[in-house]
Amino acid sequence: MFIKDYIKDIASALKSLATGMKMTGYYFTHHKEIITEQYPDNRDTLVLAERFKGEVVMPHDDNNEHACTGCTSCELACPNGSIKIITKFDVDAETGKRKKAIDTWIYHLDLCTMCGLCVEACPTNAIKMAPTFEHSVFDRNKLVKKLNEDGSKVRAGVE
């Protein structure tokens, strides 16, 4: 019957609207469900995943030594050309042999897409991804970084 269907339509429509309103009403009254994170305020408690790919860093130990031999695997693996390694030849004091070493390890953070292929390619685990993300600076030149520290040398035994 037409009238019956008409009323049934209205009733089911109102019911469906009321279900939605009940749900939003629940969230309006239950503030413990709020999931907002207030970023600059929670900086101290912010825990980033340890694998987060934020930027490439080169860990140095206490003796200012790193594990980079200057093999340029990372430079070849990088799809964007954001790594440039300038090598030099050190002369070993004892044997007098010439040995390849890095002079400057240049990292273009402004070109990097954080794909992690350089870390994957490195045979000596000299570089890794650091979980940092606050990279914004006012001068673009600051994004070009030198990763090996001044006076650092390759750790003994790393070939």
């Binding site: 995943a49 694998r51 292929l117 991804m129």
Partner: peptide
Amino acid sequence: VIMEETCGARLTMNYYV
């Protein structure tokens, strides 16, 4: 969060080789 923890990124993960 799951992606970030295992793959190290949230949107463009590049996890498969």
